[in-house]
Amino acid sequence: MAAGGDHGSPDSYRSPLASRYASPEMCFVFSDRYKFRTWRQLWLWLAEAEQTLGLPITDEQIQEMKSNLENIDFKMAAEEEKRLRHDVMAHVHTFGHCCPKAAGIIHLGATSCYVGDNTDLIILRNALDLLLPKLARVISRLADFAKERASLPTLGFTHFQPAQLTTVGKRCCLWIQDLCMDLQNLKRVRDDLRFRGVKGTTGTQASFLQLFEGDDHKVEQLDKMVTEKAGFKRAFIITGQTYTRKVDIEVLSVLASLGASVHKICTDIRLLANLKEMEEPFEKQQIGSSAMPYKRNPMRSERCCSLARHLMTLVMDPLQTASVQWFERTLDDSANRRICLAEAFLTADTILNTLQNISEGLVVYPKVIERRIRQELPFMATENIIMAMVKAGGSRQDCHEKIRVLSQQAASVVKQEGGDNDLIERIQVDAYFSPIHSQLDHLLDPSSFTGRASQQVQRFLEEEVYPLLKPYESVMKVKAELCL
């Protein structure tokens, strides 16, 4: 049975990233139509530049190519590739079939990587351009969430054990800070992308030097003109047959890092959902379990974690691919890159769409948070109580021993009897502590235990987050809708 299948058929496997999760716009960027249309555009740009620099290419040939950029006979191309065992030459023939007058000058002087690699770089750039505003929107939604809850005390956790208090907004800023680093890295790697350009079979530009009869300047002009037509500021000066596969490492490393950030955020949300302090959106008709109707599973956060793990592992592909590119190139890269580049971007696209949807509907339960604080705060307040007693004339050592005994009794009630923490009640009825009984409410005010959390939130948002989001103001209103 021949390899390949009808990918629109229910009898043929289709990647869930495309069929179930990723956005239509990201799927289109990695589609065959987008790819092969870009090949034709690159052939047109090459012909236009070659004509401008004096090669015998007519206006009629150029116009014929322009008129057929979208006229792609995919069936013919597939048949040609089956016959020739070469995808680029299959599309040269297919393009030439609908451009008979231009057929002889299509791909003039070029090698397969002229269309293959340059198209990949265009796709990487455009895919990054799709991700950047999506990530900015996630940051914006979380920034709104953090600002609104900047002063809401909550129990902090280290080692997932109760620690000092923080605020809900401050905790959210930990998430935002990681995503801001990801946004900066995505922008950097996007701006650092260079075009492969017009380089020939081993990167020496020998074929173009021959076409222009040894004119170095025209060869350099050709490279520059096509690079500018493709919208790049610069091209690699040095290439082998391909652009260095280190570029793929750079791009997928940034995406993998984004995956790590999203995994951490969504894990926190899942843990908070278990504590009943916070939940992701839950639709009115949504079913959490087929057997347990009360369940409210954090399905979206779980999906993000599941896909983020996949995204983090994909960076190993370009690392290994770059390491086995012998001399000017081997074909070890080809099949692998067809999979890992598309999957990385479709996965990143999915987790950003999902995280935006989550961040637009996060639900906080202040009463649950308050109750958990009441359970733990008495123990945390013991040092403040000791200091207040010393100020009232008591002995630190005597007070410490009193607190120690009462704390152990209260802990026994919590752990052995399943009761509430009654340390404060014990202190309130103990005559030894009568000098500070009137101060206990103040000493137990949760806001006095959150330090500068709310001020940190305000400063972080104003100095770091809002300036970073400013270039994306025009796209901030787009909502994230999930079908599944």
Rank of each mutant, 00 (worst) to 15 (best):
Q439E: 15
P133W: 14
M76G: 12
L484K: 15
T166D: 00
R194T: 06
N71G: 10
R426A: 08
L174E: 08
M278V: 10
L84Y: 10
Q356P: 04
T166Q: 11
P318E: 02
K264M: 06
L132Y: 14
L469R: 03
D398I: 13
Q184I: 09
T354R: 01
I72W: 14
Q409A: 13
C266N: 06
D422L: 06
A90D: 02
T313I: 13
H107Y: 02
P162N: 05
Q428M: 13
D248G: 03
Q161A: 03
I287D: 02
S334F: 02
I249G: 05
N185I: 03
N384P: 13
F232P: 04
L193M: 14
V115C: 08
I265K: 07
V478C: 15
E376L: 06
A136V: 15
E401V: 04
I249D: 07
R338M: 03
E360M: 12
L469F: 06
F36R: 08
M65T: 04
S261I: 04
D223M: 06
F208D: 01
G8P: 14
A90K: 07
K82E: 13
C99G: 04
C340W: 02
K170G: 01
E417G: 10
K477F: 11
M312L: 11
C172R: 02
D398P: 05
F28W: 07
E25D: 13
L155E: 01
S253Q: 09
L124Q: 11
H93K: 14
S151L: 09
N384A: 15
F195N: 00
L174M: 15
K75L: 09
V189F: 06
E50K: 03
E283D: 14
I436V: 10
K470T: 12
L183T: 13
I386R: 04
D430C: 13
L314M: 12
R459F: 09
C266V: 09
E80D: 14
R374G: 08
S207G: 13
G288R: 04
H159W: 00
R149C: 08
R245T: 00
G214P: 04
Q397S: 07
V368Q: 05
A411K: 08
A273M: 13
V198P: 06
D73A: 07
V138G: 07
A206W: 05
D445C: 14
D248H: 00
S407D: 02
M387E: 06
F157V: 00
T94L: 15
Q205L: 05
R188I: 05
V189S: 10
P366I: 14
K218Y: 11
S301Q: 08
R404F: 06
I105N: 12
F449R: 05
S289E: 07
E473T: 13
R83E: 12
F195P: 04
L319W: 09
R245M: 04
K35I: 10
